[in-house]
Write a protein that binds this DNA or RNA. Structure first.
Lengths: 220, 220
DNA sequence: CCTACCGATCGGTAGG
DNA sequence: CCTACCGATCGGTAGG
């Protein structure tokens, strides 16, 4: 029916991966049986093994095909900005936008960590490292003066800080008190920029007047 | 034999939890069977169900008993320092020290996320929130002037940044190129402090002379 | 707390 | 001789 350029076998394989991906996200790795995958892919259970040697094999194919960084790093590298500040702002926004609002990004990674003890993470890191270098290069090309911190460290901190923002946002989400959530992303960008740029530049953050001078937490 | 102050039932329950904890970390949730736990706890399979209603029940007891934040937040709050800078430095060190070098901290949390879709995270967050507030209070009491950023955001960024340091360290660990790893924690502290403190204070970071003026990545 | 089991389902494989 | 798939069943394990 669909995609007449592919063979029957290729289409079946694609159906299996699509079904597996959907169910891994919905029900987790062990919550999804080979029978579930077969049913949703429209074939018999035994037929799966003509395409994949094992359930683990299927997961790995899904993990690689829906690679978190397949969208995220290109999005970061597509960021625009004449100055370092503008570039960082846009990169953070692009990155969060690519991650989306769902937990999908995290779920496949968590499954990998739990079921396979993170054994594929180093290999994954190696494959995305060139893109990380490219991002570092782009960041340093912007106008503005960076403090004396190793560039790779700046990138590591960037990714870590905004992934942590994303994780708390999706995992705790609406349960965060308003004081921890309102304009949080803007503030994270602000802290990061102020942390990596030389003094006396204007980080131009949104006013946070109501917090000016707060020295205790009674208001919480 | 051991712990004569507890009843027989309490001792058995403790044995079950100890055996389960050890095996969950070693083999994962689904890699550990109730029979495995029973064997290592020295009782019959059926006997477990006199203490726990289900396998999930055992996991939750382990998850709560070996709560990541049971050690981590108290360690952060035990940090010392007259100035904000000194306090933050010590708090980061204490926190990383409490987390340790193993992946144990992460593993139980990842299992919770995968197997139970993070459904216990909000409740967990609620129970540790008072300690987070205390940490915020302690941070702001130190000498030094904070920039106009909401205090809860500062704490959220602190935890996020250093947890991300911990995660990359334990997960990618030795695979990180030296440029991303050397003195990384000191640099993270430096970036964070510079990001949250008003300008023209001396963040007194270790010299990073060899990186001074680096504007491209050719050396990588 | 044990022995002895249950209904069902698991991932994977048989021959054709 | 191939790719793609079937109905049936393998040895073991799941929570209870």
């Amino acid at each position: 029916m669909s995609d007449l350029t592919s063979t029957r076998g290729e289409r079946t394989q694609a159906e299996i991966l699509k079904a597996a991906h959907r169910q891994f996200l919905e029900r987790g790795y062990h919550g999804t049986s080979m029978r579930d995958i077969a049913r949703e892919a429209g074939i018999a259970l035994g037929g799966i093994y003509n395409h994949f040697a094992s359930k683990e094999d299927i997961f790995l194919a899904v993990f690689i095909e829906h690679h978190p960084y397949r969208d995220v790093l290109p999005a970061m590298n597509a960021a625009q900005g004449e100055t370092i500040e503008a570039f960082v702002r846009d990169a953070a926004a692009q990155m969060l936008d690519a991650l989306g609002e769902s937990q999908d990004f995290l779920n496949l990674t968590f499954i990998e960590l739990v079921e396979f003890k993170g054994q594929h993470i180093p290999q994954l890191f190696e494959s995305i490292f060139p893109q990380i270098l490219e991002f570092a290069q782009r960041m340093v090309e912007g106008q503005g003066e960076l403090r004396s911190v190793p560039l790779p460290i700046l990138v590591r901190a960037f990714i870590g800080l905004f992934i942590s923002y994303y994780m708390t946002e999706t995992l705790i989400g609406r349960q965060l008190p308003d004081e921890m959530q309102r304009n949080a992303l803007d503030h994270f960008v602000d802290i990061y920029l102020h942390g990596i740029l030389k003094d006396s530049i204007n980080t131009g953050e949104t006013p946070v007047g109501e917090w000016q001078g707060v020295t205790n937490l009674d208001s919480l």
